[in-house]
Simulated assay, not measured.
Amino acid sequence: MKSNYVIKCMLFIFIFLLIVGLFSPFIAEYLNNAMGTDISINSFDSNYLLTVISAASALAGVFFVIYGWYTIRELPNTIEKTINEKLDKEIKKYNERIDILLEASQKMNTVYNIKDVDQKINLLNDIIELCPDMYNARITLGYTYWYEKKNYESAEQCFESELMSNPNNINAMCDLVALYDEMDESRNSIKYAKQALDIDKNIKNYLLNDSRLKEDLKQKIEELN
């Protein structure tokens, strides 16, 4: 702000002096007529014009030097102010993020104590809206739809949504394996079993010991590389 003010002042002075220089012949003529003086300035004289331009250029150079000195003097304060503003902004964002995480965590703790299924679903949806990447929120919502509401489609959407946000979430993949097995969609079960195995070969043992899976599906998983 200070540097802008200095620039405006220098420009004003420069333009004022330039105008005075260019219009001085007319000023001299006015003074001659009004006060009877004998000031002679020819505005069309090339030497005079060159003098005005040279003087204006010299003034511009002086103003540039003054502005450069002022800028260098103010540079540390400007840098410090800019850094502090950015730091304050980042700290504010960080604190807001912490507040959101704390609120979401408190609500997640409440979820596990709620007996009413619809109330639990509503609270989980609020948590996901508040903090979309809240750990286990979508998975818990999927379980609620699956085990307590028998709403397989909504459970599927929850697990798929979790994978969109966290593509390497093996737990969500294994849940989809079990969900599709319960829905008698073994092709989709095998699809997500393969995806999980691509990330971690050891997950096969977990799937083979998953009590939710039917034996014929376990046999197919056993054959996967």
Rank of each mutant, 00 (worst) to 15 (best):
L217T: 08
I139Q: 01
C9Y: 11
L197I: 13
F12G: 12
N136H: 06
M173T: 00
Y30S: 13
E29D: 15
E29Q: 14
M164R: 01
N166Y: 03
I91G: 03
E153D: 05
V117E: 04
I121F: 08
K8C: 07
F64E: 03
D88F: 13
Y5F: 10
L213G: 00
E96I: 11
K150S: 10
M35K: 14
A193F: 06
A196F: 02
F14T: 11
E148I: 03
R138S: 07
K191M: 12
T144I: 02
K149G: 01
A55E: 11
K220H: 05
E96L: 14
N136P: 01
N42G: 03
K86M: 12
I41Q: 03
K89L: 12
A58L: 14
A172G: 01
L18I: 13
P76V: 08
Q119K: 15
A104N: 01
R97W: 04
K81R: 13
L31D: 05
I15N: 08
K150W: 07
S57H: 06
K214V: 04
D184W: 08
E74A: 15
L102G: 11
Y135C: 04
C9S: 13
E129C: 03
N32K: 06
L123I: 11
D116E: 12
F16E: 06
N33Y: 10
E162H: 00
T110Q: 04
Y5S: 11
N168C: 01
M108W: 01
L141A: 00
P167A: 01
S189M: 10
E96W: 07
V65H: 05
L102W: 08
T78S: 09
N109W: 02
I83L: 12
N136T: 02
F26I: 11
L11K: 08
L130Q: 04
L179M: 01
L75F: 14
L197M: 14
T82Q: 12
D126A: 04
E85V: 14
I170H: 00
S165W: 00
I121T: 05
I170G: 00
E90G: 09
S165C: 00
L11V: 13
W69A: 15
K86Q: 15
A104C: 04
K149E: 02
Y70W: 11
L179F: 00
N32V: 05
N202H: 13
D38P: 02
D198Q: 09
A178Y: 03
I190K: 05
I199P: 01
W69R: 15
F159K: 02
E96F: 08
I100A: 03
V20E: 06
L17T: 12
N33K: 14
N166T: 07
N169Q: 04
E223D: 08
I13V: 15
K115E: 10
M183W: 07
N47F: 08
L176V: 05
L224H: 03
I66W: 09
D116C: 07
L49T: 10
K149L: 01
N136D: 07
M164K: 09
V111F: 09
N168E: 10
I72L: 15
K204G: 09
K93L: 15
K218L: 07
K150Q: 09
L102T: 13
V52K: 05
S46K: 10
I203C: 09
V65W: 07
I39M: 04
D210K: 10
